[in-house]
């Protein structure tokens, strides 16, 4: 069972009685595969890691291009309350999503952004750690922009410890068409590598493009 790492720096909250859980918000615009990303993440946790996960997606007049988000609670115990109250992790794949959901990010939480699509223009809650990945560019270089959500999942897998690497890969491969398996595997791998390089460099997100593994995707 993976460590729920993002918990480490979370301050005691009023709902501390059921603290062994991680609240995640994945947000972007319709067409980026936001819901599928949350679905895969939940599947990795609930099916392949054997912990509990509850995913809810925001339903509304959302279509391609509109704001779109999903919520995921991962826990050691069955999840009771199904919604995010304060996010431990925010994955923001668009500027609009970032602006809308950053206020619900917990102090000491994790912020993961699509670095080419999100500019961090406002103050973040205290002690938030930020990581950025050029997921769309990486996906384009791999051959298809649609796998940018899978790149993001790889990146997520490297910088958090919510789900295991093996579970993530199993969840991805069981969620995409067999004919696209190789491409998705590459996308996941690329995301992991970039994420691991960022983590190991200990550099702030704004300076990560100095890392060779990271810079390689930027030209």
């Amino acid at each position: 069972m993976p460590e729920l790492a993002s918990r480490r720096e979370v301050a005691a909250a009023p709902d501390a009685v059921e603290r062994e859980l991680t609240e995640i918000r994945v947000a972007g615009f319709g067409g980026q595969g936001v819901i599928l990303a949350a679905q895969i993440l939940g599947k990795a946790a609930a099916i392949f890691d054997g912990v509990h996960a509850t995913m809810t997606q925001n339903f509304g007049p959302e279509a391609r291009g509109g704001a779109c988000s999903a919520q995921l609670i991962v826990a050691r115990h069955p999840v009771l309350y199904p919604y995010v109250t304060k996010a431990d992790i925010l994955v923001a794949m668009s500027q609009e999503a970032f602006g809308k959901f950053v206020p619900e990010l917990k102090q000491g939480g994790l912020l993961l952004v699509e670095r080419d699509l999100v500019r961090i223009q406002q103050d973040l809650p205290e002690r938030v750690r930020t990581y950025g990945v050029p997921a769309t560019r990486i996906a384009e270089k791999l051959g298809k922009r649609v796998v940018q959500n899978i790149v993001m999942l790889g990146f997520f897998g490297a910088v958090t410890e919510v789900v295991s690497r093996k579970a993530m890969e199993q969840a991805v491969l069981s969620s995409v068409p067999a004919s696209m398996a190789a491409l998705n595997k590459d996308a996941l791998q690329a995301g992991y590598e970039v994420g691991r390089a960022c983590l190991e460099s200990r550099l702030p997100a704004s300076e990560c493009d100095q890392i060779p593994e990271y810079a390689a995707w930027l030209d």
Binding site: I47, A53, T56, P82
Partner: peptide, 9 residues
């Protein structure tokens, strides 16, 4: 609606 649209194992 919550139960209908909620995804779990």
């Amino acid at each position: 609606e919550v139960v209908g649209h909620m995804t779990e194992r």
